[in-house]
């Protein structure tokens, strides 16, 4: 059985990754799962300088999912290079660093500082709904996405994944803009902007008022968008949104994803990533699938 997938020349032992922001740099969930079993660890977003993030409350539960407005709290690239990368290098898994910024210059500074680092790919977060200073605009207007992708591609030494926002009218247009600007892959979906109101206090539950929704309740939206994006572009698509099991992951692969990421479900089941790997293998055994590539995009008109 072959579970290996290749994205932009990088070979992953299996298509299971962690969704940025739900897994830190692997230290916390390394107590629960064997990181060597994962295709890749995608880190929490890292900026050029430390970011304090948003005020609390930052998280809220909603029907079948959750809202978060962490605001990309992170220690900045210098600490990250000294601490998080060496930690991840102890494991036999690929390292994808999620990069965030408020201006194009911020992103480019992080990308440059990562140029000599032993990381396999970069994922560019242009779609966080919880940071006000304009980062989201890069991910919501096709021409802005094209522009920032082009600039990052000029500087980046590693293959670049653009992480797309679902909070757009036409996901296919966004995927095409990323591809046209030279992106090596796209990942989707980031969280869907939501809101929760406490009817007893008559107030917003989150200090940030709005937050990004994740969890099983958003999975059908994510599958649909992965399907649309993968039919719009030739570059690989990495799918995520509510994945809890091997079956969920297979659904994304069939819709056209070349790899998948487990996000909010880590909080629900800290063993989720490893269980998704096992679940994919069980499915392949059951249907006698020799090579996982047979499944990618197998459901089409």
């Amino acid at each position: 059985m072959n579970t290996k997938v290749t994205i932009a020349g990088v070979e992953f032992k299996n298509p299971v990754m962690t969704a940025s922001g739900t897994f830190g740099s692997g230290m916390e969930y390394g107590e629960f799962v064997d990181l060597n079993r994962l295709g890749a660890v995608v880190t929490k977003g890292v900026a050029n300088v430390p970011w304090p993030g948003n005020p609390t409350p930052r998280v809220a539960e909603v029907y079948g999912g959750m809202l978060n407005a962490i605001g990309l709290q992170n220690p900045g690239i210098d600490v990250f290079l000294k601490r998080d990368i060496p930690f991840l290098k102890q494991y036999d898994t690929k390292i994808i660093v999620n990069v965030c910024g408020k201006t194009v210059e911020d992103y480019l500074e992080v990308v440059e500082k990562l140029s000599d680092a032993p990381v396999d790919m970069l994922e560019i977060n242009v779609s966080c709904p919880n940071v006000k200073e304009g980062a989201i605009a890069f991910g919501q207007k096709a021409e802005c996405l094209f522009d920032i992708t082009s600039q990052i591609k000029k500087k980046a030494k590693q293959p670049v994944i653009m992480k797309l926002s679902p909070n757009v009218t036409d996901i296919a247009e966004m995927a095409r803009a990323a591809e046209a600007a030279g992106a090596d892959a796209v990942s989707l979906i980031n969280t869907i902007t939501g809101m929760k109101i406490d009817i007893h206090k008559r107030a917003f539950v989150l200090a940030n008022k709005t937050g990004g929704m994740s969890g099983p309740a958003i999975k059908p939206v994510a599958v649909r968008m992965v399907y649309q994006a993968s039919h719009a572009v030739k570059i690989p698509v990495i799918g995520m949104g509510g994945i809890a099991s091997g079956e969920d992951a297979i659904e994304f692969l069939l819709a056209g994803a070349s790899a998948v990421a487990v996000g909010a479900m880590n909080f629900v089941n800290p063993y989720a990533t490893e269980e998704v790997v096992k679940g994919i293998e069980e499915y392949m055994n059951r249907y006698q699938i020799e090579d996982i590539k047979e499944l990618i995009g197998a459901v089409r008109e």
Binding site: T22, E28, G53, T56, R58, V79, P270
Partner: peptide, 29 residues
């Protein structure tokens, strides 16, 4: 106490302001 999601230090949902720089994110949280 604070609203929590993961409970294990990964999601950064339940932070409080600290006098000194914190060892995780280096931002007094």
């Amino acid at each position: 106490e604070e609203r929590m999601a993961c409970g294990v230090g990964a999601c950064l949902g339940c932070v409080c302001r600290t006098k000194d720089i914190d060892h995780h994110s280096h931002v007094n949280n």
